[in-house]
Amino acid sequence: MILFWFLALAVVASAVFVVTAKRPVYSVVGLLANFAALAIMYLTLSAEFLAVIQIIVYSGAILMLFLFVIALLSSGVRPFSVGPDRLPRVLVPLSLFGIVALGGLLFVIALNPSAAGTSNASGAPLGPPGQANVFGSVADFGKVLFTTYLLPFEATAFILMIAVIGVIALAGDVDPIPPKARRRK
């Protein structure tokens, strides 16, 4: 219980930090914390395998990519910069309104007792991890993945292939624009 609230606080705080950080590098750090906290939360929900995947794939691979691109784009002497704001100021409160409307989602889902799904009693508390040992384990996960959900699993192979081919084709571009004299800010 305490662990949940602690983790929830960490998740929310890091998420807010991601969105509000001044520099993208800080955002990456915030995201790292967010993912780590989420991974622990997955453990409490008896999703052991996912917790590991979350750390390896997200923190290990995706965030490294982000860091790499940040480094690439802000290489040289130029600071990582942002141009003048073109979106009218008046839209900012409007967007806040939109986000608040999204809050309707929150209330409906969180405050409604029937949100627990069908196979479980409404609002039934979840036990601590370990009660259902088989559920969520790597063996359990793998078995389902390669039998019941074989088709989605095969499909992911194509997704990764598209990513590889697509990125090679995109990034292999010869940029015909002659390098302009870069202005310093």
Binding site: Y149, L151, A155, I159, I162, I165, G166, A169, L170
Partner: peptide, 20 residues
């Protein structure tokens, strides 16, 4: 799941195609 994966296969390839 199939819906989601189909959608993403479709979209990811198109993101690349748009920029090529």
């Amino acid at each position: 799941m199939t819906i989601f994966l189909g959608l993403e296969i479709l979209s990811l390839a198109l993101y690349c195609l748009c920029g090529m």
